[in-house]
Design a protein around this nucleic acid. Sequence first.
DNA 1: CGATTCTTTGAAAACAGTCAATCTGTGTGG
DNA 2: CCACACAGATTGACTGTTTTCAAAGAATCG
Lengths: 194, 194
Amino acid sequence: MHDSFIAYIKSYSASPLGEADIELIKNTFLPKRFRRKQYLLQAGEVCKYSAFIVKGAMRQYSVDEKGNEHVVRLSIENWWAGDRESFTMLIPSIYNIDAWEDTDALLITYADFLNGLNKIPAISEMITKLDHNHAFALQKRINASISFSAEKRYEEFAKQYPEFIKRFPQHIIASYLGITKETLSRIRRQAVKK
Amino acid sequence: MHDSFIAYIKSYSASPLGEADIELIKNTFLPKRFRRKQYLLQAGEVCKYSAFIVKGAMRQYSVDEKGNEHVVRLSIENWWAGDRESFTMLIPSIYNIDAWEDTDALLITYADFLNGLNKIPAISEMITKLDHNHAFALQKRINASISFSAEKRYEEFAKQYPEFIKRFPQHIIASYLGITKETLSRIRRQAVKK
DNA sequence: CGATTCTTTGAAAACAGTCAATCTGTGTGG
DNA sequence: CCACACAGATTGACTGTTTTCAAAGAATCG
């Protein structure tokens, strides 16, 4: 279960990972299996764990006054799940995170991250890169949301994340893009015509 | 010119700042004055500098095929300006950044940041906090863009950033919110009625 | 003052959301 | 193996919102 995570760390870091480091990593990250629909986080709770997904798929979403769900993030193998603000500031989250598929994950608390893991050079190097990539991706999504049409947002998303299109149903993708499932259905019909 | 920046660093850090550190900071950050409309970055260029704004206001925007500008970020005193992806990866940017008001800024290159400044504990501590705050803010903005109405997005923005409302004209705010200036004008008229 | 920028307004067109119905595929239990 | 339930996808008719385009009215600045 930890092996794919060790490989993942190495892919993000030039620093060596010693045996002791690997032991520490294995002892600190808690393996947990989630069944479909099981929560990693429920709105109102503090996000105690950040989860590295070894296998499966999760979604993070908020729920508005009308009860509509709005998907803010999707994660599959070799991605992370967790509400970063709640996780690092220890404040209640407004988001829910649940398993869309049965999921194997590795969990870590912020305290464990700060106290032990962040002192491993390969880990802090990885985190720096992940933070950069995360910021880049969020910036791009914001730019897309204010400057692209719904149709173009879908096209770009499908091109950049084809695996997500396969793994999540259309109404989830629509929500992620900020449109209704009906609108996405019609956009796709138009696209087929061309 | 550097004094307000030193105070800013201290406000983000518990680590002490020695005389030598302050000297290094003063020698590394390049003070530069921008006239209104002057570019910090033009699309197609690499974003060579990240700018700490001592006084003034800047905006970051992309331009679409039709020539419409889409504002992705606004910055005033004690905020930063720069395209992070271009700055750290040294790749050409798709954004323009220009001074909306005459602006005094302190500029730094990514190489100078990595080589010297990041080794000052107060600086790296500050950067970590800024990165967190930046990620939180981007996440909130994405959630707002997919789950709030245009009216609510404007209200939240006005409540959270009243200074921005004062300093930037409505068509800039509208673009930032992802709506047209006409729509924002009508939203405001509705709001006055209530 | 004159020029420029910013804001507002109106009318029409384009776009997206809502609601309700139907269709499809999948999987479960009898 | 069939019947049924369930989740997902599609469609149509309607409603509501936002954009577009054009014009005119304020405000600001040199």
